[in-house]
Design a binder for these strands. Structure first.
Length: 832
RNA sequence: GCCGGGGUGGCGAAACUGGCUAGACGCAAGGGACUUAAAAUCCCUCGGGAGCAAUCCCAUCCGGGUUCGAUUCCCGGCCCCGGCACCA
């Protein structure tokens, strides 16, 4: 009976033990199917969180932060009566996993399942309301079968194409990288200097969607920071393409200095440039072609050929880092001259690497007077600098000591009939004028490039294409999907520019789906961002094996109701997902153009004021904290340390406060009295708290919601008072989204058999919540001097009288009121 | 350089659309009650300065401004974090 290891007394038997409570409810939820979503349920609400890459290190506290924030939002929606789908899966393909597998000498097909199992264990502990029946793993053939299907859909619609292109090549990862994966000229993953290579690559025509991707940003409910990042990335510029005829060295020989015809004659070489400043054309004193520009070859004169060739060769060999980071201007004169269509002047044609082949037309008209880069270049090579725009304090002859790039305040000068026209108008007028003369065309350019999806690697979904000598490029028929990634021991990338799959005969050789003759498979795999560009479409349809997503279910559950994730994906994942969804919309397969009507970016968790990193050794291991404090405490603490959308500073020292709060909640329910009546003041505070928390949760103001509950707890237990059951019961429901396990346990303790999450959100009783008397703030000369207690609907006169009758306040009234500002329900300001 | 987001006590942070004597809530710190003692719990103090005290003055990065009233709005500047960057 009295074994030595038995708990000593009843007090301890009933103490809050998170380990036991959490284990009990983890099991109970599975047993009861509490988190299994009925897809036919009323008021569907699709709560989406960004699925993690299952790293070998296990769940990062940042993952837990994001998931908890999502989970609270999802659980709150459920308490509001929605049928909530809150799925989670694994984004396990990609270079990251493959590199790690190579480093460890473990095959990814062995490594990934191990990591996934560890993640699953950690995620289960975290108390997420995830319906695990609808999970996805991007490396599962049952999933990537449909990733390949997505590729084929794009191919079918003319949105996937192959071209040879100068691409970013990472010599360490030995693969092509998307522009988005290159940071300041180095690989975002391994920080190796990226090189240029010309390879045959598969691209998606995301640029066809640029205008829609931009326009829709105005209609979706997203964090501003994310929308701005996308706008910048899309980079829309309005301007004009201008045509410059190049003087033919033979027919135009000797005509230097002669006014040449301004007609653009057909047959001669014409250089088309893109500019956002057509108004400055009279100041265009030379042209620049990108070194890769095909016209360089044609226009270069024999005496310049040697220098030009050498320059082009150097540019070709140069890596992208030096080209983008080193901004010293270099270039070579081609020997050619072109005609400025505005004034007929002959201007030299140069080639220089500060002009990029990939943007606009790969050629520019240089206006050194009004462009910083052109100014720098012109100074270095002693090219003429002409002023054609004057600011408010300048005139046509004010010397230019630096370029003048202000396009808001300037007016044109030295521009013939356009002199005096403000820049904004001149842009349009000059374009119109040149258009009439056949030398211009208004165009809109985007910074966005097509999406290169080819990867010369192993760990990804094989691109479902077969090359046949007779039939050409043949897509793998849908019935033959998936093209299974073979389990091969030799998956190491090499420097050949061809993926490792090319070395595996059994994979490489395949019959042509059209004619049956021997043919070759595409050996590139697709970018991991394709896996994650459509995963949210898959979750609701997961058991289905015959379609990627069921039409009815998709119509019912898409678009996603709320998506919360990291802003590091503002331009990569979120743009690609919007693009793919838009394509699916055009194909009639999804109900809306935009997949995520509401997106919120959460902040970042730092630790003790510094970013967490392995090298700093300050990484928080969620397991250790959940062991010590319990998952409910860790969850609630993470949400308490700062505004969810801004992040917070994780400090070990502070966790105890949250745990104390849960301890007190536990004790309050355990000891609650059932006799007598609840206290009116406490009930007032309770209903005010319900109102506050109910308003804070949908706004993701989790930290203030928790503070409000703590405040209520202080009222509830002030001076060791024993709370009444009615005073604590609704609080259990308020706490539930944050601390689901303890909430369920306490709910049961209060005599309920069903889950607290099916009990509904407590209603605010406005009657009880109302303050009868109003504490009116009194200011004298704008300075707050005190308060008077007055009836709610007090008039200004009555309020003033109350102040005059208050000895403490009346002494500040040193004269007759000159002016009285009365804000009903708020304050009374008396100016004397 | 451009675009976002910030700058409030020893610390993490509150303050709805300009208004409840700025600092809720929590941590840390100090004091007290209970206890043989400790833990736990509960109570009190906790931006700076002056004063025995009631009270008064100063204080939300800095300098101006608008207003009866500014952490909040406007102008100028400094600093920190994140993103983009030779994009014509």
């Amino acid at each position: 009976m009295t074994a030595p290891d038995m708990p000593a007394g009843p007090e301890e038997v009933l103490a809050y033990d998170p380990t036991a409570v959490e284990a009990k409810w983890r099991a109970r939820w599975v047993e009861r199917g509490t988190n299994a979503t009925d897809l036919q349920g009323e008021r569907p609400y699709y709560q989406l969180m960004m699925f993690p890459y299952p790293s070998a290190e296990g769940l990062h506290i940042g993952n837990l932060y994001a998931f908890t924030g999502n989970d609270i939002h999802g659980r709150f929606q459920r308490l509001q009566g929605h049928t909530v789908l809150e799925p989670l899966g694994y984004d396990a393909f990609g270079i990251h996993s493959e590199n790690f597998a190579l480093k460890m000498g473990v095959h990814p097909m062995e490594l990934i399942p191990r990591n996934v199992a560890n993640f699953r264990r950690q995620l289960d502990r975290a108390g997420l309301m995830v319906d695990w029946r609808r999970s996805v793993d991007t490396t599962d053939p049952a999933y990537y079968k449909w990733t390949q299907w997505v590729f084929l859909k794009l191919y079918e619609r003319g949105l996937a194409y192959k071209k040879q292109a100068a691409v970013n090549w990472c010599p360490s990862c030995k693969t092509v990288l998307a522009n988005e994966q290159v940071e300041n000229g180095v690989c975002e993953r391994c920080k190796t200097t990226v090189e240029q290579r010309a390879l045959e690559q598969w691209f998606f025509r995301i640029t066809n969607y640029a205008e829609r991707l931009l326009k829709n940003l105005d209609t979706i409910d997203w964090s501003d920071s994310t929308r701005t990042a996308q706008r910048n990335w899309l980079g829309r510029s309005e301007g004009a393409e201008l045509r410059f005829r190049v003087l033919d060295p033979l027919t135009d020989a000797g005509s230097a200095g002669v006014q040449v015809s301004q007609e653009i004659t057909s047959g001669s070489t014409v250089i088309t440039v893109f500019t956002t400043r057509p108004d400055t054309i009279f100041g265009a004193t030379y042209l620049v072609l990108a070194p890769e520009h095909p016209a360089v070859e044609r226009v270069t004169t024999p005496d310049q050929r040697g220098a030009v060739e050498a320059y082009r060769e150097a540019a070709r060999r140069q890596d992208i880092v030096s080209r983008q980071v080193n901004k010293d201007k270099t270039g070579v004169f081609t020997g050619a001259y072109a005609v400025n269509p505005a004034n007929g002047e002959m201007i030299p044609v140069w080639t220089a690497d500060y002009v990029l082949m990939g943007y606009g037309t790969g050629a520019i008209m240089a206006v050194p007077g009004h462009d910083e880069r052109d100014f720098e270049f012109a100074q270095k090579f002693d090219l003429p600098i002409v002023r054609v725009v004057a600011g408010p304090d300048d005139d046509a002859n004010t010397p230019l000591t630096a370029c003048y790039a202000d396009d808001a305040a300037g007016r044109l000068v030295n521009s013939e009939q356009f002199n005096g026209v403000p820049v904004a108008d001149a842009k349009r007028q000059v374009t119109e004028w040149l258009t009439l003369r056949g030398a211009a065309k208004p165009v809109t350019t985007f910074r966005l490039r097509d999406w290169c999806v080819s990867r010369q690697r192993y760990w990804g979904p094989p691109i479902p294409i077969i090359y046949c000598d007779a039939c050409g490029t043949v897509p793998v028929p849908e019935k033959d999907l998936p093209v299974v990634l073979p389990n091969v021991p030799d998956y190491k990338p090499d420097d050949s520019g061809v993926g490792p799959l090319a070395r595996h005969e059994a994979f490489f050789h395949a019959p042509c789906p059209t004619c049956g003759k021997p043919a070759r498979r595409e050996t590139d795999v697709s970018d991991t961002f394709l896996d994650s560009a459509w995963y949210f479409l898959r979750y609701p349809s997961v058991p289905r094996d015959d379609v990627p997503f069921d039409a009815d279910i998709t119509k019912r559950w898409l678009p996603v109701s709320a998506y919360i994730g990291g802003n590091e994906h503002a331009v990569l994942h979120l743009l690609y997902a919007r693009f793919i969804n838009m394509v699916m919309f055009d194909a009639g397969l999804v109900p809306t153009e935009e997949p995520f009507h509401k997106f919120r970016a959460h902040g970042m968790i730092i630790r003790d004021g510094a970013k967490m990193s392995k090298s700093r050794g300050n990484v928080v291991n969620p397991d250790a904290y959940m062991d010590q404090w319990g998952a409910d405490t860790v969850r609630t603490y993470l949400m308490f340390i700062g505004p969810f959308e801004e992040g917070g500073d994780f400090r070990d020292q502070s966790i105890s406060g949250v745990r104390r709060f849960l301890d007190r909640l536990w004790a309050s329910v355990r000891d609650a009295r059932r006799d007598g009546a609840p206290d009116a003041d406490v009930m007032k505070k309770l209903h005010q708290t319900i109102r506050k928390v109910g308003a804070d949760l949908p706004a993701l103001s989790y930290n203030t919601a928790i503070a409000a509950m703590m405040e209520y707890m202080n009222v509830l237990r002030r001076g060791e008072r024993v709370p009444h059951e009615f005073e604590v019961k609704p609080l259990v429901a308020l706490v539930a989204p944050f601390a689901p396990h303890i909430a369920e346990e306490l709910w049961e303790m209060l005599g309920h058999r069903d889950s607290v999450f099916d009990a509904g959100w407590p209603a605010v009783n406005e009657e009880l919540a109302r303050d009868d008397a109003l504490e009116l703030v009194v200011q004298i000369n704008g300075k707050t001097r005190g308060k008077v207690s007055v009836p709610r609907d007090v008039t200004q006169e009555a309020a003033l009288a109350a102040v005059q009758g208050d000895a403490g306040l009346a002494k500040f009234l040193t004269g007759a009121p000159k002016k009285v500002i009365y804000v009903p329900g708020r304050l009374l300001n008396i100016v004397v």
